[in-house]
């Protein structure tokens, strides 16, 4: 219940901050009346900018903000609301040009007759167009993720900064000291947010470093990175959560990557992340030397059994390295002495490359764990399930009681696997609120 109240509160605050400029500018005494189309265009510009500015809040990784929804949903919302705010910003000049074609001459950036307010607005608009094009088509344009992130931040700052300059230079609606103070405060809020995320928080992370203790080969091109806190109490987290990792790089560079924690939440001074070789960055994990300095930003995420204290049973449906949050949960349950039943349906390519295969077997003696392996390429004498995770397997292995709040099911693995499992669970009439997934496609 607390989560829903928090979620509703943040949503209403978001809406309030998005609408604040146009509501406050309507307070008497108002600026003199003008044509409807001109004021409609102005209102769309103000609202579009307010929504664009709110993206700094959404992507600032505030834990209190992501707690009710999950980080994946915050980024999903960020992508969608950003495109909608771009449409509002774009509509602002288009409406002006349509209803007053004389304003088209303001597009001549180099003309001495073009005022600086128009130049600032036009540059902000170009930054907005670039932001959307580079984000929506990043993969098609083959732009490297880290480079894109830096430019994304730069362009967003240019957009908000120059749009603010544009509004201040136009100054039409700021006819009272109250409205001027409001706009200055609004601007200072964005600057303060930028200072916090780009300078203050990285400084805090630098003062709470970790050192790599060891890198363990878990099989199946999967490696665990074990970290020890240096001079502080470690990371307090819930099993199933994740953190952003900066490896051998100061946090100012923002070259961090999100990974699930695989260690026990009962041991905050022994943190591990389990990572599979999938791309340029993950291929370097096995080469990291003990003693390397690491900074952790987190924990984040709601993909945790601790969010469902009422649950009587749990099930994890994992594919390959998607076992990571399940490992954290199983290790935590073992440390806590939690005997609630856990069913693990674990899909892998073959028997030889199953990450944590031996440790999972060992955990069966410490907790109430049932393991169901599903192998794509099983050995000849294999008696278990083969192929992919099907509705039939789920129907047989998951709890037959499909009442709400009995068995909480967590799904983690490759996107197509998660899509298929969600579809099967829905068809099997599992309560929609009882199965959970968290997707790391944040970019």
């Amino acid at each position: 219940m607390k989560r829903y109240i928090q979620g509703t509160f943040w949503l209403l605050l978001f809406l309030g901050l998005a609408l604040a400029p146009i509501i406050l500018l309507m307070i008497e005494p108002r600026a003199p009346s003008r044509e409807f189309f001109r004021e409609f265009s102005v209102a769309l510009g103000f609202s579009g900018l307010a929504l664009a500015g709110m993206q700094f809040v959404l992507t600032a990784r505030f834990r209190f903000l992501s707690a009710p929804y999950g980080t994946d949903i915050i980024y999903h919302f960020h992508r969608e609301i950003s495109i909608l705010s771009f449409l509002l910003i774009l509509a602002h000049p288009i409406i002006l040009f349509l209803f007053d074609p004389r304003t088209l001459k303001l597009l001549n950036f180099l003309s001495p007759d073009t005022p600086w307010r128009a130049r600032a607005g036009l540059t902000a608009l170009i930054a907005a167009i670039l932001l959307v094009v580079l984000s929506v088509w990043r993969k098609k344009l083959k732009i490297e993720y880290n480079g894109w992130r830096i430019w994304h931040g730069v362009l967003a700052t240019v957009l908000i900064g120059l749009a603010m300059v544009h509004i201040i230079l136009v100054g039409y609606h700021f006819n009272t000291p109250f409205k001027q103070i409001f706009w200055v405060s609004y601007t200072l809020f964005w600057i303060g947010l930028l200072v916090y995320t780009r300078i203050l928080r990285p400084f805090w992370l630098i003062r709470h470093p970790y050192l790599v203790e060891k890198v363990v080969d878990e099989g199946g091109r999967t490696y665990s990175l074990w970290l020890k806190p240096q001079g502080h109490g470690g990371l307090k987290f819930q099993p199933g959560q994740f953190a952003w990792i900066h490896i051998d790089q100061l946090p100012f560079y923002h070259r961090d990557h999100p990974f699930s924690i695989s260690s026990s939440a009962a041991q905050p001074t022994q943190i591990s992340f389990t990572i599979r070789e999938l791309g340029d960055f993950t291929r370097t994990i096995k080469e990291i030397k003990p003693g390397t300095k690491v900074y952790l930003e987190g924990p984040f995420g709601i993909f945790s059994p601790d969010h469902h204290p009422q649950a009587k049973k749990f099930a994890y449906i994992c594919g390959g390295v998607g076992i990571t949050p399940a490992m954290s949960t199983l290790r935590t349950f073992a440390d806590r002495g939690d005997k609630r039943p856990v069913t693990l349906i674990y899909a892998n390519r073959d028997w030889e490359n199953i990450p944590f295969r031996d440790e999972l077997e060992a955990l069966r003696s410490r907790i109430n764990l049932k393991i169901v392996h599903v192998l794509e390429q099983p050995p000849e004498d294999w008696k278990g399930y083969s192929g992919y995770i099907t509705a039939d397997i789920l129907n047989k292995e998951l709890d037959s009681d499909r009442q709400p709040n009995v068995q909480e099911v967590f799904i983690c693995g490759p996107g197509p696997m998660m899509d298929a499992v969600e579809k099967h669970l829905s068809a099997l009439k599992f309560p929609a609120g009882d199965y959970h997934s968290e997707r790391f496609d944040l970019a």
Binding site: L11, F14, L15, A18, L19, I22, I23, L25, M26, R30, A31, S33, R34, E35, F36, F37, E39, F40, V42, A43, L44, S47, L51, Y69, G70, I73, H76, F77, E80, I81, L84, L87, L88, A432
Partner: peptide, 30 residues
């Protein structure tokens, strides 16, 4: 499911912003 709710909320916010913008334009044009 969560993603669909998030999309729906983004669209609701977008519509509300347009409605308030129309009210703003009307208030300043009379």
């Amino acid at each position: 499911m969560r993603k669909r709710i998030s999309t729906a909320l983004a669209i609701v916010i977008f519509i509300l912003v347009i409605v308030f913008s129309l009210i703003f334009a009307w208030a300043f044009s009379i």
